[in-house]
Design a protein around this nucleic acid. Structure first.
Length: 120
RNA sequence: GAAGCAGGCCGGACGGUCGCCGUAUCGCAGUUCGCGGUGCGGAGGAAAGUCGGGACUCCACAGGGCAGCGUAGCGGGUAACUCCCGUCCGCCGCGAGGCGCGGAUCAGAGGAACAGAGACGAGUCCGUCGGGCAACUGGCGGGGUGAAACGGCCAAUCUCUACGCGGAGCAACACCAAAUAGGCAGACGACGACGCGGCCCGCCGAGUCUGCGGGUAGGUGGCUAGAGCGGCGCGGCAACGCGCCGCCCAGAGGAAUGAUCGUCGUAUCGCCGCGAGGCGAUAACAGAAUCCCGCUUACAGGCUUGCUUCACAU
């Protein structure tokens, strides 16, 4: 981490490497409850937060839909200040989003990240 | 022109901005990890269901048989198949065409609704001729039932025949390898226990150090040049094969291929306009996971080839 990373970038270090760290974040006692999902928080590597999604097949049957939710969440995250807080974040939706209702999902993710940033 | 049959193909295009993955190269760091710039590449016809077949790994394995499972006109194609092609037969359609688990009753077992006197065992409901006192019995003929009535049917019931088939799967498999706990070997080892035990000596010993092997997290390989794609030629009715030339075409790994804007298109719907047209909204099924060949299923809309029937015209 010698050089400065691009401002809106989201490279590999913002993802989870391996199952271990991901499960640890899921078991973390710190969480924020949104309208339709839960955000697990665990202190991680300083300077670079990591974002993951716990999305069971039950909530999004088709692989296309799961990919879409993940990409939209990542898109919100890479432009958000929470990216630099050095936290391991895992979003776990609790209910299915209607097909094509991308706006509601984007708003949900944005609201959760805003609250994370505000707590600091 | 109308209705239809059988195929083939496409499945928005181009360009900015912000990002992601791989790779080559340059710079920073310079042992690596890494960061940044630039170039190039980056989902599908089904990537899907995981149904059939193979390649590839590991395990098992003398040979043969039995059992089990699969396939089933005939011939061909293929690495192989339950796939594909050709053809015969049967059924359906005026036709182009479509559909078909289409081997065998020589051996054995089993089965047949309803109707019918009687249904796989053999016999006798009716008529008639004969024998007999009669019960009964022998011959001949016929009606009716039904898919079928001493003569067959079903093998999509077992069976028989011929041929094929070991098991598990890339989370296979190979390698590197923290921390923690435990294992093995060696060394040291307290004024510790045991040997009559005070010294020497032997032995046990918590612990310390060193080495070794198994193995988890994690990492690397497998992992993308292939039964590959595109031309042309030759052989073949065809599936397909052979030869020559050209091309390199995703390799992620809690899993990249995204977001947004503009221009131009296509279809449908709504509104405006006499009209040419204009404005707005929506856009199918669906996302690689070791790789291939098939099959099946889903799909907005569009392009195209050959053929059939009917109608019209010449």
């Amino acid at each position: 981490m010698t050089g400065g990373a691009r401002k809106e970038g989201l490279s590999r270090r913002h993802r989870f490497a391996g199952r271990g760290a991901f499960m640890a974040a899921l078991r973390s006692p710190r969480k924020i409850r949104g309208t339709a999902s839960l955000l697990h928080i665990l202190p991680g590597v300083p300077g670079a937060s990591r974002l993951g999604l716990a999305l069971p097949k039950r909530l999004a049957r088709r692989a296309v839909d799961r990919n879409r939710l993940k990409r939209l969440a990542r898109e919100v995250f890479r432009r958000h200040e929470a990216k630099r807080l050095g936290l391991d974040l895992v979003i776990a939706p609790r209910q299915a989003f209607a097909r094509g209702d991308a706006a509601a999902w984007v708003a949900e993710v944005g609201a959760l990240l805003d609250r994370v940033a505000a707590e600091r």
